[in-house]
C-alpha cells in the first residue's frame, strides 16, 4: 500500500509531469486562461490518462511482449490511446449527456497529447505492474490537473493586475510557469528513490 501512496505522491508533486518532466505543456499554456476550462481539462485528462495507461499496459503485456515486438510500442500505444478515447467519447456521449458536456470537447483535445503517450511509455520503462500503472497514470493526471488549476487561477489574477507592457500576455505566463516549476522542484527529496 505504501508503494502506491509513494507513486501517487511522487507523480503528483515530486515528478510533476508538467513542471518537472515538461510534458503536456501545450494544454498547460493553452487551456489555462479560465479556471472553469482548466477544471474541465483537468477532469478529462484524469480520465484519459488513467484509462490509457491501463490500456497501454495491457497492450504491452499481452500483445507486444509475447510477440517480441516491443519496439513497436510507440505506434501501438498511439493507436490504442486514440481508439480508447474515441470509443469512450462515443459511449459517454450516448449514455451521459451531462458528463459529455463537462468533458466533451476536451477529450479529443487531450488524446494526442505528449503527456498521455509519455505516461504510457514511462510506465513500461519502469516496468510497473497493472495496478502500479493505473496509479501512476492517475497520479500524473492529478498532478497535471492540480498544476493546471493553480496556474489558471494565477493567470486570472495576472490579467487584472498591472503588468509592464513588455511582459504582457504569454511572456508573463511563461515567467509564472517557470517560477511555479522552480517551486515544484522544491518537492524533490520529499520521496526518496
Amino acid at each position: 500500500m505504501t508503494e502506491y501512496a509513494l507513486i501517487l505522491v511522487s507523480t503528483v508533486l515530486v515528478n510533476n509531469f508538467v513542471l518537472v518532466k515538461f510534458l503536456g505543456l501545450c494544454p498547460f499554456m493553452g487551456v489555462s486562461r479560465k479556471l472553469e476550462t482548466a477544471l474541465g481539462m483537468g477532469l478529462a485528462t484524469t480520465f484519459v490518462l488513467t484509462l490509457s495507461s491501463v490500456c497501454a499496459y495491457l497492450t504491452n503485456e499481452f500483445l507486444l511482449a509475447p510477440l517480441g515486438i516491443e519496439y513497436l510500442r510507440t505506434i501501438a500505444f498511439i493507436l490504442v490511446i486514440a481508439v480508447v478515447v474515441q470509443f469512450t467519447e462515443m459511449v459517454v456521449h450516448k449514455t451521459s449527456p451531462v458528463l459529455y458536456q463537462v468533458l466533451g470537447i476536451f477529450l479529443p483535445l487531450i488524446t494526442t497529447n505528449c503527456a498521455v503517450l509519455g505516461v504510457a511509455l514511462l510506465n513500461t520503462q519502469a516496468q510497473h505492474s497493472f495496478l502500479e500503472s493505473a496509479v501512476y497514470g492517475f497520479g500524473a493526471a492529478v498532478g497535471f490537473s492540480l498544476v493546471l488549476v493553480l496556474f489558471a487561477a494565477m493567470r486570472e489574477r495576472i490579467t487584472v493586475s498591472d503588468v509592464p507592457a513588455v511582459f504582457r500576455g504569454p511572456a508573463i505566463a511563461l515567467i509564472t510557469a517557470g517560477l511555479m516549476s522552480m517551486a515544484f522542484m522544491g518537492f524533490s527529496g520529499l520521496v526518496k528513490g
Binding site: 507486444l64 510477440l67 517480441g68 501501438a76 490504442v80 470509443f87 462515443m90 459511449v91 456521449h93
Partner: peptide
C-alpha cells in the same frame, strides 16, 4: 509478425469504432 500484429490490431480497432459509431 510485427506487420500482422499491428494490422490486426488496427483492423480490430477499426471494427470496434465502426460498430460503436452505429451502436452509440
Amino acid at each position: 509478425t510485427a506487420i500482422l500484429a499491428l494490422a490486426l490490431l488496427a483492423l480490430a480497432f477499426g471494427l470496434l469504432l465502426g460498430y460503436a459509431s452505429v451502436r452509440f
